[in-house]
Structures are given as C-alpha cells and as structure tokens.
Design a protein around this nucleic acid. Structure first.
Lengths: 129, 129
DNA sequence: CTGTATCCCCGAAGATACTG
DNA sequence: CAGTATCTTCGGGGATACAG
C-alpha cells in the first residue's frame, strides 16, 4: 500500500508478519486493508450463517429466507449481493415461470471454508480453557 | 446450542461442517455464535491493526495512540479492553510515577495469528485472480 | 501517562409497501 | 418468486472535557 514496488497488494497482516508495520500507520491504511474488510463482511449479522447454509447445499432465495428466522428481504438480498461481488457465491437464474434463482458457493467460496474452520477451531479451543 | 447434549458449545460453523444446520435456524443462534462474534470483533475498525502491532512487540498505551493515526482515546481504550476480556492481549501496569501500562499479545493471542494468516492468504489469493 | 464520562453524528440494519 | 424503494431506528465511532 505505502510501498508501491510490488504487484501484490499489501495489507496489515502481511506487513506485520513481513517487513513490519510503519512507525506511523496512516489513517486509511487499515480501512483499505482487504483482510479487515473481509473480517468485517464475514462478521456481518447474517453473512456467516448464509455462507454455511450454502456450504451444505445450494439454496433458492425464499428457501434461505424461510430457513433463517428473522432476516428481512432487504438484508438477505444485500448479504447475497456482497457475497456475489466478492466471488464467494454464484447466482443462477432459471428462466422459468415464475423465475427461480439459485445461490451456491463458488470454488473460491469453498476455499474460504478452510481458513474459516481454522479460526473456528481457535475459538473453540479458547472456550474450553 | 440447540442440542444441549455436548459440553462443547456448538456454533454455526461446526454445525454446518458436522451434523448440519437445522431446517429452521432460530433467531438468536447466529447472534450467540462465538465465531461470528469473533469475526465481528476482529472486523472492528481498529482491532486487527492493534493486534498486528502487538504481534511485533509490546506497546505502551500512548505509543499505540501515537502510532495509529486517527484513533481516539475512547476507541483505543475500548479496543484494548475487549481484546483483554477475550484473553488476546495482556495488560501490565508498572507502578511508577507516572504509571506506565504495557499491552502485549497473550499466548492465545499469538495462537490467533495462525488462522489469521490463513485467512489473509485466502484474501490475497483472491485478489490475484 | 493512562485513562473515564458525556454528548453527538452518521451509516448499517430493520419494517413495510410495492413491482417485474 | 425474487426482488426494489422508502422510511425509521439504533448503535458504533468521533470529539471533547475531566480525573487518578
């Protein structure tokens, strides 16, 4: 980010694990950090639940809506859109009447399950202690 | 959570990876999910940055404050308190005049760096694509 | 130096009505 | 069925003053 001499985008985690954080971390560096952004998205009220449901099997829109008690249309749509933009879920429209839309985990979405399980392990180990 | 027949607390990730999510996920199950809570905390505006700074070396309170451009006292204190309550950082008071307080990563905090690096890897691989 | 207490603002999330 | 549009509400986060 502040270097500009690599083609791989830097972020707080890699800077800290690698060359070290700058003496003064500029405002905006952490907001632009893609890892923080990912954490934020996954920490959204509904995101993780939706991801894990799609990890089981693909779901239709209203199927998700019925299964997740209390979610509003607006929030389900928004959650799915963000996940789609991030390449974690795919959206497939079946041109039937009435139209059906199926949401499923992409390859990248399934890859996410691995580090997620690692984090979940850490959480569980902490609860035991 | 909904079982009650194990002593290890269930959460969305383990339910999905294991026996499967219920047909109707009750409102409150995801809010109580410790993995979501962890993701939420790590996704806070300043948390990850503070964690990675303490991963480099212990810091004094004002040292963190000066190094993180734009953070308010309120937010730095709040961030550190939450991390301390979660057992991720330790707080050591030196009874000097004026008093000095050192924040450092606990063993559990250092353990967190591993799954965090895994997630960061996933993020970076996604950016390359 | 290391905080706490208070007030304020703005954007995320919810409720509801409507549409292709 | 699968959304969008609009309004409202709520809490995270910032600014500032004060304290041990």
């Amino acid at each position: 980010m502040s270097d500009g001499n690599t083609d791989v985008p830097r972020h707080i985690v890699s800077e800290a694990l690698g060359p070290g954080l700058p003496a003064l971390v500029p405002a905006g560096e952490y907001e632009a950090c893609p890892v923080t952004q990912t954490l934020q998205m996954l920490g959204d009220k509904w995101t993780l639940l939706v991801v894990m449901m799609l990890a089981e099997r693909p779901h239709r829109y209203n199927e998700l809506r019925r299964r997740v008690e209390g979610i509003s249309q607006r929030m389900l749509t928004r959650t799915l859109r963000v996940l789609e933009e991030d390449g974690i879920v795919t959206r497939t429209v079946f041109p039937t009447v009435p139209p059906g839309v199926e949401y499923a985990l992409s390859d990248r979405g399934r890859d996410l399950l691995v580090p997620l399980a690692g984090l979940a392990d850490w959480v569980v180990r902490g609860q035991a202690a």
